[in-house]
Computed example of a mutant assay.
Amino acid sequence: MSTIAEIELPAKEFALRTALERAPNAEFDVVRVAAHDANHVMPYLWVTADDLEKLDSALRADNSIDKLNLIEDLGDERLYRMHWVDQIHVVIHILVEEEATILNLHGKEDRWRLRILFPDRDSLSATYDFCQDTGLSLDVRNIYEISDTRHGLYGLTEEQHETLMMALEAGYYDVPRDSTADDLAGDLSISHQAVSERLRRGHRSLVKNALALSPSDGRE
């Protein structure tokens, strides 16, 4: 069964280390990453920083980058395409050796967080062993299996998925609302508090797993 894992790596052991050191307030959100070959990784990533010009200079001075192209400049954030050529062994292993998919990759301050879809639990174990053997400080933060339905991809439980879909179909999200939390509670035969909790946790999982993957200090 496919497995999703959220892992963290220290920034000093990963690409863009120099850029993060020189622009400590920068954040990187990779929206697509592919292995160009055994020695190159080509990501597209959005970047934000207090001083984007300073960050641009830091990127161009970073030895882990071979090619750098500015694709979009929206004023407060930029989209780059680049080639990573150093400190990318774990990414190559994940994409090539394990045939896994990197769903999210977020870098900030002193660490990177990756959310990875592995073909199975053995592939995750092999990646952990690879990092141990190569001296990388891999920290596995969260692991869960994908259920037989697609909602497992977004970290939703069966109950959360059921409640969210019922809320959508009942018009809970319409403006004005055609249904209330009390209505949903009656349909589901659970308390108002339980409905609110399912919706809150479900919304958090959807935002976290579909839209963002920011480093967090707390384990889940």
Score class of each variant (00 low, 15 high):
Arg81Leu: 12
His36Ser: 08
Ile88Cys: 06
Trp46Pro: 01
Asp76Lys: 09
Thr127Ala: 05
Leu184Pro: 00
Pro24Lys: 04
Asn63Phe: 10
Asp76Gly: 06
Asp51Lys: 01
Arg78Lys: 12
Thr157Gln: 04
Asp37Ser: 14
Asn209Met: 06
Asp217Pro: 05
Arg219Gln: 08
Leu199Gly: 04
Asp122Asn: 10
Asp110Tyr: 09
Leu117Asn: 05
Asp37Phe: 05
Pro24Thr: 09
Ala126Cys: 08
Val91Leu: 15
Ser64Asp: 07
Ser137Gln: 12
Leu59Val: 00
Met166Glu: 14
Gly155Glu: 01
Glu99Thr: 11
Thr18Ser: 13
Leu184Cys: 03
Ala23Thr: 08
Leu211Cys: 13
Leu156Arg: 02
Phe118Val: 06
Trp84Ala: 12
Ser137Met: 07
His89Cys: 08
Ala100Gln: 01
Val47Thr: 04
Ile146Pro: 04
Trp112Pro: 00
Thr157Glu: 02
Leu153Pro: 06
Trp84Thr: 09
Ile143His: 07
Pro119Tyr: 03
Leu16Trp: 01
Cys131Asn: 02
Asn104Asp: 10
Tyr128Ser: 11
Ala181Phe: 05
Gly202Pro: 02
Leu9Met: 14
Leu52Trp: 00
Trp46Cys: 00
Arg219Gly: 07
Arg81Asn: 09
Tyr144Thr: 08
His36Thr: 11
Leu55Gln: 00
Ile71Pro: 02
Ala15Asn: 03
Gly135His: 02
Ile116Phe: 01
His151Thr: 10
Thr48Asp: 01
Trp112Asn: 00
Arg115Tyr: 07
Ala100Cys: 02
Asn25Asp: 15
Met166Arg: 15
Glu220His: 11
Ser123Cys: 12
